[in-house]
Protein backbone atom coordinates (compact mmCIF):
# COMPACT_ATOMS: atom_id res chain seq x y z
CA UNK A 1 0.00 0.00 0.00
CA UNK A 2 2.79 2.32 0.92
CA UNK A 3 4.52 1.41 -2.28
CA UNK A 4 1.45 2.16 -4.30
CA UNK A 5 1.01 5.49 -2.59
CA UNK A 6 4.62 6.35 -3.20
CA UNK A 7 4.29 5.62 -6.86
CA UNK A 8 0.63 6.53 -7.12
CA UNK A 9 1.21 9.43 -9.46
CA UNK A 10 3.16 7.30 -11.90
CA UNK A 11 0.40 4.72 -11.98
CA UNK A 12 -2.18 7.42 -12.66
CA UNK A 13 0.09 8.88 -15.30
CA UNK A 14 0.27 5.55 -17.06
CA UNK A 15 -3.50 5.11 -16.93
CA UNK A 16 -4.20 8.62 -18.18
CA UNK A 17 -1.71 8.32 -20.99
CA UNK A 18 -3.03 4.98 -22.09
CA UNK A 19 -6.57 6.30 -21.94
CA UNK A 20 -5.57 9.15 -24.23
CA UNK A 21 -3.66 6.88 -26.54
CA UNK A 22 -6.55 4.47 -26.76
CA UNK A 23 -8.92 7.31 -27.52
CA UNK A 24 -6.69 8.66 -30.27
CA UNK A 25 -6.39 5.30 -31.91
CA UNK A 26 -9.87 3.91 -31.59
CA UNK A 27 -12.48 6.67 -31.25
CA UNK A 28 -14.18 7.65 -34.44
CA UNK A 29 -15.16 11.22 -33.70
CA UNK A 30 -12.52 13.74 -34.69
CA UNK A 31 -13.15 16.10 -31.79
CA UNK A 32 -12.98 13.18 -29.40
CA UNK A 33 -9.70 12.20 -30.94
CA UNK A 34 -8.35 15.65 -30.26
CA UNK A 35 -9.61 15.56 -26.68
CA UNK A 36 -7.86 12.22 -26.28
CA UNK A 37 -4.75 13.78 -27.69
CA UNK A 38 -4.90 16.55 -25.13
CA UNK A 39 -5.42 13.97 -22.39
CA UNK A 40 -2.41 12.02 -23.58
CA UNK A 41 -0.32 15.15 -23.54
CA UNK A 42 -1.41 16.20 -20.07
CA UNK A 43 -0.55 12.70 -18.93
CA UNK A 44 3.01 13.21 -20.08
CA UNK A 45 3.10 16.64 -18.49
CA UNK A 46 1.97 15.11 -15.21
CA UNK A 47 4.75 12.58 -15.55
CA UNK A 48 7.35 15.31 -15.84
CA UNK A 49 5.87 17.38 -13.05
CA UNK A 50 5.73 14.50 -10.64
CA UNK A 51 9.33 13.58 -11.32
CA UNK A 52 10.28 17.11 -10.38
CA UNK A 53 8.25 17.24 -7.19
CA UNK A 54 10.05 17.20 -3.87
CA UNK A 55 8.47 16.54 -0.54
CA UNK A 56 8.25 19.68 1.52
CA UNK A 57 9.71 21.94 -1.11
CA UNK A 58 8.55 25.39 -2.04
CA UNK A 59 7.90 26.84 -5.45
CA UNK A 60 11.11 27.54 -7.35
CA UNK A 61 11.35 31.23 -6.53
CA UNK A 62 14.45 31.93 -4.48
CA UNK A 63 13.80 33.83 -1.28
CA UNK A 64 16.36 36.48 -1.75
CA UNK A 65 17.61 39.12 0.55
CA UNK A 66 18.83 42.38 -0.91
CA UNK A 67 21.19 45.01 0.37
CA UNK A 68 20.42 48.72 0.38
CA UNK A 69 21.44 49.17 -3.24
CA UNK A 70 19.09 46.47 -4.37
CA UNK A 71 21.94 44.13 -5.01
CA UNK A 72 21.33 40.58 -3.94
CA UNK A 73 23.29 39.33 -0.98
CA UNK A 74 25.14 36.16 -1.71
CA UNK A 75 23.68 33.24 0.12
CA UNK A 76 24.01 29.50 -0.15
CA UNK A 77 20.95 27.83 -1.55
CA UNK A 78 20.00 24.27 -0.88
CA UNK A 79 18.26 22.93 -3.90
CA UNK A 80 16.23 20.51 -1.79
CA UNK A 81 14.18 23.45 -0.57
CA UNK A 82 12.82 24.31 -4.00
CA UNK A 83 10.91 22.32 -6.53
CA UNK A 84 12.62 21.33 -9.73
CA UNK A 85 12.39 24.26 -12.16
CA UNK A 86 13.70 22.32 -15.13
CA UNK A 87 10.78 19.96 -15.54
CA UNK A 88 8.47 22.90 -15.07
CA UNK A 89 9.83 24.98 -17.88
CA UNK A 90 9.92 21.94 -20.13
CA UNK A 91 6.26 21.46 -19.46
CA UNK A 92 5.46 25.11 -20.03
CA UNK A 93 6.77 24.50 -23.51
CA UNK A 94 4.85 21.26 -23.82
CA UNK A 95 1.59 22.92 -22.80
CA UNK A 96 1.98 25.66 -25.37
CA UNK A 97 2.93 23.16 -28.04
CA UNK A 98 -0.07 21.10 -27.00
CA UNK A 99 -2.52 23.94 -27.39
CA UNK A 100 -0.98 24.90 -30.71
CA UNK A 101 -1.47 21.35 -31.96
CA UNK A 102 -4.98 21.32 -30.59
CA UNK A 103 -5.82 24.56 -32.39
CA UNK A 104 -4.43 23.26 -35.64
CA UNK A 105 -6.30 20.00 -35.21
CA UNK A 106 -9.51 21.91 -34.62
CA UNK A 107 -8.97 24.02 -37.71
CA UNK A 108 -8.53 20.84 -39.69
CA UNK A 109 -11.64 19.40 -38.09
CA UNK A 110 -13.65 22.38 -39.26
CA UNK A 111 -12.35 21.99 -42.77
CA UNK A 112 -13.06 18.28 -42.73
CA UNK A 113 -16.56 19.07 -41.62
CA UNK A 114 -17.18 21.57 -44.38
CA UNK A 115 -15.75 19.07 -46.86
CA UNK A 116 -17.52 15.90 -45.77
CA UNK A 117 -20.39 17.20 -43.62
CA UNK A 118 -19.42 14.91 -40.82
CA UNK A 119 -17.08 14.60 -37.89
CA UNK A 120 -17.19 10.85 -37.81
CA UNK A 121 -14.23 9.11 -39.32
CA UNK A 122 -16.21 6.04 -40.32
CA UNK A 123 -18.88 8.14 -41.99
CA UNK A 124 -16.23 10.10 -43.89
CA UNK A 125 -14.47 6.96 -45.03
CA UNK A 126 -17.80 5.55 -46.12
CA UNK A 127 -18.60 8.64 -48.12
CA UNK A 128 -15.20 8.53 -49.78
CA UNK A 129 -15.36 4.97 -50.91
Amino acid sequence: MDYILNHFNYIIVVIIMMLGLWGMLSLSNLVKKLISMAIFQTGIILFYISMGAKKGSSIPIIKQAYDDHHHPIHQTINHIDYANPLTQILMLTAIVVGVATLGLGLALTQRVYSEHKSLNEDEILESLS
Partner: peptide, 23 residues
Protein backbone atom coordinates in the same frame (compact mmCIF):
# COMPACT_ATOMS: atom_id res chain seq x y z
CA UNK B 1 -7.89 17.59 -44.85
CA UNK B 2 -8.81 14.21 -43.47
CA UNK B 3 -5.45 12.77 -44.52
CA UNK B 4 -3.66 15.57 -42.73
CA UNK B 5 -5.83 15.11 -39.70
CA UNK B 6 -4.77 11.49 -39.46
CA UNK B 7 -1.20 12.55 -39.94
CA UNK B 8 -1.63 15.05 -37.12
CA UNK B 9 -2.86 12.31 -34.82
CA UNK B 10 -0.06 9.93 -35.75
CA UNK B 11 2.54 12.68 -35.69
CA UNK B 12 1.44 13.76 -32.25
CA UNK B 13 1.57 10.20 -30.99
CA UNK B 14 5.10 9.98 -32.35
CA UNK B 15 6.16 13.26 -30.80
CA UNK B 16 4.52 12.36 -27.48
CA UNK B 17 6.29 9.03 -27.36
CA UNK B 18 9.51 10.82 -28.02
CA UNK B 19 8.74 13.27 -25.24
CA UNK B 20 7.95 10.39 -22.92
CA UNK B 21 11.26 8.79 -23.81
CA UNK B 22 13.07 12.02 -23.03
CA UNK B 23 11.19 12.08 -19.74
Amino acid sequence: YIATFNYLIMGTIGACFYLLGVG
